[in-house]
Design a protein around this nucleic acid. Structure first.
Lengths: 114, 114
DNA sequence: AGCTTTGCATAGAAGTTCTAGGTGAGGGAA
DNA sequence: TTCCCTCACCTAGAACTTCTATGCAAAGCT
């Protein structure tokens, strides 16, 4: 009778990278801070799990959209800071543009539908 | 040097089910028609591939959000028609609500970001 | 010395989408 | 009749992202 059902997913698939890039546009930050900023700015609607966050940071760095360096956090702990590269900034505009286009397109289907 | 890079993805992940449910709210339709309506209503921004469409229809039916029956298409061909169930209609409101919430939350992060 | 918090990291499962195939029947052209 | 194009359905496997569940290490307080 159980079903299983899968009742989570607090992040819209494919948008995390864009949100990270956007957050880093305000300056370098380490993982914990990035997650907290996204969660707070979204009024806690978006939940950034560590198991999603770190793989995302790694792939963004692998694509040269972020660069990283080790430093010390506000709490005096070792932390890896990430900053946006020029390519990353360009990528952000690409993803933001695509996002707006998609939202508009989906909005048309959801409202109209001839 | 190649990279590979993956340059497609004409659908925002996780939104196809909602778009199908919404389309069927206007009446029963078969797969081809559903895809064409979504593509046209979105001004060709959304592309519904057959390899995405049919698995989506099958899982929606498995969850009892759609019911199907065989019939004849406008072109006199055998076609499987899908219609929204009561549970499917309820699910549509759930997904639409979640979608609006997500768009608003992402919008806050993209605009503000303190 | 022990406990909590901060912070980074990975493995494996689950889910959706795309690519790339394949099947079959209607209908017009040669 | 035969050929071919279009409509319409379907699936397997790859690719990608996210989540769950863990693990590790160091700072700092009790």
């Amino acid at each position: 009778m159980g079903k299983k059902q899968m009742e989570r997913q607090e992040m819209l698939l494919g948008t995390l990278d864009m949100l990270i890039l956007r957050t880093l546009r305000m300056g370098a930050a380490h993982g914990h801070t990035i997650a907290r900023v996204i969660e707070q700015t979204s009024d806690e609607v978006l939940q950034v799990e560590q198991g999603s966050l770190y793989p995302a940071l790694h792939r963004l760095e692998a694509r040269r959209w972020l660069a990283s360096y080790w430093g010390t956090s506000e709490n005096n702990r070792k932390a890896k800071f990430y900053k946006l590269t020029a390519a990353g900034n360009k990528q952000l505009t690409v993803e933001a543009s695509r996002w707006k286009q998609m939202v508009a397109a989906i909005g048309r289907v959801m409202r109209e539908a001839e």
